[in-house]
């Protein structure tokens, strides 16, 4: 499950196009804020924070990123700002409550496995806890919250929404990145414009 991550587009960085027609001022301003104005912790408590950081690390390990995306900060910001996504399942608490409850329960799950808290587990162990949670093999009290929904629709969905809208995540997968006013000309398979990632270097698949 773990192991190293092979990058098919090692040299590609969408930010290299900052001054090109692929970017316009509106996009530059959005990305400038994202890159330069990372908010601090405002919603979560100091006690909850290490659990959140450990959770982000387990979901999206970034050891190989020289400048990791501050996932926890953006989760905190979305909750602090009350940013919704349009849906609340009837069996789910409101997102702020769900996150608090979930982080506490993750610590309890770690405790039930003999650790001090979730953050003190190593990455393998964190992954094992999360797989148990996803499968409903629970040892702690989640107060009736549907755990799979919490884990997949809230935790995973929010983390990937932050990571893969960030230039770091976009570059990693060879996505073209911002594209306005300039879009693309070559639409055929195995054809890329000169302002796209060069052909990927693939491991065996």
């Amino acid at each position: 499950m773990s192991g190293t991550f092979h990058r098919p587009y090692p040299a590609w960085n969408v930010l290299d196009k900052w001054d090109s027609p692929s970017f316009n001022d509106t996009t530059r301003e959005v990305l400038r804020q994202r890159l330069e104005e990372v908010p601090g912790r405002r919603f979560f408590t100091a006690d909850e924070w290490p659990t959140l950081v450990a959770l982000c690390d387990a979901v999206l390990p970034q050891d190989d990123n020289p400048d990791p995306v501050p996932l926890a900060n953006w989760i905190d910001a979305a909750l602090f700002e009350g940013r919704g996504n349009g849906t609340r399942h009837a069996d789910m608490p409101a997102p702020p409550d769900a996150w608090r409850l979930g982080l506490a329960a993750l610590d309890a799950e770690a405790g039930a496995r003999g650790a001090a808290d979730f953050a003190s587990l190593d990455r393998e162990e964190r992954g094992a806890v999360l797989r148990d949670v996803d499968a409903g093999r629970l040892r702690a009290d989640w107060q009736g919250m549907p755990v799979r929904r919490f884990f997949r629709n809230l935790v995973l969905a929010e983390i990937v929404a932050i990571y893969y809208s960030h230039p770091t995540g976009q570059s990693e997968i060879g996505f073209g990145g911002p594209a306005s006013p300039r879009g693309y000309v070559r639409l055929q398979p195995n054809r890329a414009d000169s302002w796209e990632a060069p052909p990927g270097k693939w491991e065996r698949t």
């Binding site: 027609p21 306005s180 006013p181 300039r182 879009g183 693309y184 000309v185 414009d193 000169s194 302002w195």
Partner: peptide, 14 residues
């Protein structure tokens, strides 16, 4: 075309 001649690498071809 979007971007006009300033975006010639797309528009001159498209």
């Amino acid at each position: 075309n979007m971007g006009g001649w300033g975006n010639w690498r797309q528009t001159a071809f498209a």
